[in-house]
Lab assay of single mutants.
Amino acid sequence: KKPMSASALFVQDHRPQFLIENPKTSLEDATLQIEELWKTLSEEEKLKYEEKATKDLERYNSQMKR
């Protein structure tokens, strides 16, 4: 599977709780709203997800070399 971006990892982490809190929201709308939240994060908060994305890219690259 392809590597995930930092923002995609953020959405993946936050979507389940968002949908619990907003059960009538469609998956598409939830994703859009969480992506807007991503844009408001500080660089420090984004760094955690950027590090995860880097590790996921390394995983992807090692799988492609096999």
Rank of each mutant, 00 (worst) to 15 (best):
K1F: 02
K2N: 02
P3S: 02
P3W: 02
P3C: 04
M4C: 01
M4T: 12
S5T: 15
S5E: 13
S5M: 03
S5L: 05
S5R: 05
S5W: 00
A6H: 00
A6Q: 02
A6D: 01
A6S: 07
A6E: 01
A6P: 04
S7G: 09
S7F: 10
S7C: 05
S7Y: 04
S7L: 11
S7A: 14
A8K: 14
A8E: 15
A8M: 00
A8D: 08
A8W: 04
A8V: 03
L9E: 12
L9D: 15
L9Q: 14
L9V: 07
L9W: 05
L9A: 01
L9R: 13
F10D: 02
F10V: 00
F10P: 01
F10G: 00
F10N: 01
Q12R: 07
D13C: 01
D13Y: 03
H14Y: 12
R15D: 01
R15F: 14
R15P: 02
R15S: 03
R15K: 04
R15W: 03
R15C: 01
R15Q: 04
P16V: 03
P16I: 06
P16E: 11
P16K: 08
F18L: 09
I20T: 02
N22S: 02
T25L: 10
T25F: 15
T25W: 02
T25K: 05
T25Q: 09
T25M: 08
T25D: 06
T25G: 04
T25I: 01
S26G: 07
S26F: 01
S26L: 02
S26I: 02
S26Q: 05
L27Q: 02
L27R: 07
L27A: 09
D29Y: 06
D29G: 12
A30L: 01
A30Q: 03
A30R: 01
A30H: 04
T31Q: 04
T31E: 09
T31V: 03
T31K: 00
T31L: 03
T31F: 05
L32Q: 09
L32E: 09
L32C: 15
L32P: 04
L32K: 13
L32A: 11
Q33P: 02
Q33E: 09
Q33W: 01
Q33G: 03
Q33F: 00
E35A: 07
E35D: 00
E35I: 04
E35K: 06
E35L: 08
E35G: 07
E35N: 03
E35W: 01
E35H: 08
L37T: 10
L37S: 11
L37K: 15
L37R: 11
L37I: 04
L37V: 09
W38D: 15
W38L: 00
W38T: 04
K39I: 02
K39F: 01
K39R: 05
K39Y: 10
K39W: 02
T40H: 11
T40F: 13
T40I: 08
T40V: 06
L41F: 01
L41D: 05
L41S: 12
L41P: 01
L41H: 03
S42A: 11
S42D: 13
S42T: 11
S42H: 05
S42W: 00
E43H: 11
E43A: 13
E43C: 10
E43I: 09
E44W: 03
E44H: 12
E44S: 12
E44Q: 09
E44R: 09
E44I: 04
E44L: 05
E45L: 06
E45K: 06
E45V: 08
E45F: 02
E45M: 07
K46F: 00
K46E: 00
K46N: 00
K46A: 03
K46P: 00
K46Q: 10
K46H: 04
K46L: 01
K46T: 03
K46M: 02
L47M: 14
L47F: 11
L47I: 10
L47Y: 07
L47N: 15
L47R: 11
L47S: 13
L47D: 08
K48A: 11
K48Y: 11
K48V: 13
K48H: 03
Y49V: 00
Y49L: 00
Y49I: 00
Y49H: 01
Y49S: 01
Y49W: 13
Y49P: 02
Y49F: 00
E51L: 12
E51Y: 02
E51S: 08
E51I: 09
E51P: 04
K52H: 06
K52G: 07
K52A: 10
K52L: 08
K52S: 08
K52D: 04
K52I: 01
K52F: 02
A53T: 04
A53L: 03
A53Q: 02
A53F: 07
A53N: 04
A53D: 02
T54C: 08
T54H: 15
T54Q: 10
T54Y: 04
T54E: 15
T54P: 04
T54A: 14
K55N: 10
K55W: 08
K55Y: 08
K55C: 11
K55D: 12
K55G: 09
K55S: 12
K55T: 12
K55V: 13
K55E: 14
K55H: 08
D56G: 09
D56M: 06
D56T: 09
D56K: 04
D56F: 06
D56H: 08
D56Q: 08
D56V: 04
L57D: 14
L57P: 04
L57N: 07
L57V: 10
E58P: 06
E58C: 08
E58K: 13
E58G: 08
E58R: 13
E58A: 10
E58S: 10
E58N: 05
R59I: 15
R59N: 08
R59Q: 15
R59H: 11
R59C: 10
R59F: 11
R59D: 15
R59K: 08
Y60V: 11
Y60P: 10
Y60R: 12
Y60N: 14
Y60A: 08
Y60T: 13
Y60I: 05
Y60Q: 11
N61Y: 06
N61D: 09
N61A: 09
N61W: 02
N61F: 02
S62I: 06
S62L: 12
S62E: 13
S62F: 12
S62V: 11
S62A: 13
S62P: 09
S62Y: 10
Q63A: 15
Q63R: 08
Q63M: 10
Q63K: 14
Q63V: 10
Q63D: 15
Q63Y: 11
M64V: 14
M64H: 15
M64F: 11
M64Q: 13
M64K: 04
M64R: 09
M64W: 08
M64E: 07
M64S: 12
K65D: 15
K65H: 04
K65A: 14
K65M: 06
K65P: 14
K65F: 06
R66V: 15
R66Q: 15
R66K: 09
R66G: 14
R66C: 10
R66A: 15
R66S: 12
R66W: 06
